[in-house]
């Protein structure tokens, strides 16, 4: 093999990969620039400004705060439901547990629009519930639960939690104390990975949320869709910028965390 040809193949592949990266990053960079530019069509030479970001806050602060509230509530609910549930499913094992796990994971395979329509048809008549942000919370919990449950089960499988549990049982600890003092601390990597996934997904969720929200319960992504349709490009971009600022620390945390060890990786 000639080193010359290897060199050419390397350069061609590098150029291709850079092109793919440009396809993904250039629009994001354009959006970030547009969000802080006085006039996007005249370019950056028209000057930089935070005016659009301020305008976004005035127009959409409620959506930003609501998205945070829903994401944190979703996290609370998936922790409360998912961690004990995952423990029970893993320790029991058997066909029934596998079937239940399959059912919990189904929302991953079903488009969000269908889940939202189903919730709307089932509970749309309960108008207080339908009008409140709790309706959106229900959708987010169903949509993100699989990530928490699978992430925690993956850690249970990796650390052989059954042996730990039996060891603690032989010392006379009650099931509840074993769960609190042995199981949960050992499942921490899976709980953390699952939590990051749940919060990130909830903050960006649109497909389920769109049909569940009302003009008074808009979330950030629903507000984004709104601004893309009706606001000037600079405002839409500034709003997108706010979303990037919220989501990037979570993405970085996930990457750092995934680097810690294969056992801690979210099961996706």
């Amino acid at each position: 093999m000639s080193p010359m040809r290897d060199r050419l193949i390397f350069i061609a592949q590098l150029a291709f990969t850079l092109l793919v990266a440009a396809f993904l990053i250039v629009p994001a960079a354009l959006s970030i620039t547009a969000g802080v530019t006085v006039n996007y069509f005249r370019g950056v030479q028209s000057g930089l400004t935070l005016e659009w970001v301020v305008q976004v806050w005035e127009l959409y602060a409620d959506t930003i705060l609501r998205s945070f509230a829903i994401a944190l509530s979703t996290l609370g609910a998936t922790l409360a439901l998912g961690v004990p549930g995952a423990y029970s499913l893993y320790v029991r094992g058997g066909r029934l547990a596998r079937t239940i796990e399959e059912i919990i994971t189904l929302p991953l395979a079903i488009p969000g629009l269908a889940i939202a329509l189903a919730l709307l048809l089932a509970y749309g008549g309960f108008s207080d519930f339908r009008r409140s942000w709790l309706f959106i919370l229900a959708g987010h919990v169903i949509f993100t639960l699989p990530f928490m449950v699978r992430s925690v089960i993956a850690v249970f499988a990796a650390i052989d939690v059954k042996t730990l549990d039996e060891g603690a049982a032989s010392l006379g600890a009650s099931p509840w104390r074993r769960f609190r003092d042995v199981i949960v601390p050992n499942a921490r990597p899976g709980i953390l990975a699952g939590s990051l996934m749940v919060v990130t997904l909830s903050l960006g969720e649109f497909n389920v949320t769109w049909m569940l929200s009302t003009p008074l319960t808009k979330t950030l992504p629903v507000g984004l869709a709104d601004s893309y349709a009706s606001m000037r490009l600079e405002v839409a971009s500034a709003y997108t910028l706010v979303f990037f600022v919220m989501i990037i620390p979570l993405l970085v945390a996930m990457q750092v965390f995934a680097g810690w060890g294969a056992t801690a990786r979210p099961a996706r």
């Binding site: 004990p84 549930g85 029970s88 509970y123």
Partner: peptide, 18 residues
């Protein structure tokens, strides 16, 4: 008992709506 809340939530907000 650990499984009950999960099963109830999934039944109420996923299986029944579906």
């Amino acid at each position: 008992l650990c499984l009950l809340p999960l099963a109830l939530a999934v039944t109420a907000f996923f299986l029944l709506p579906m």
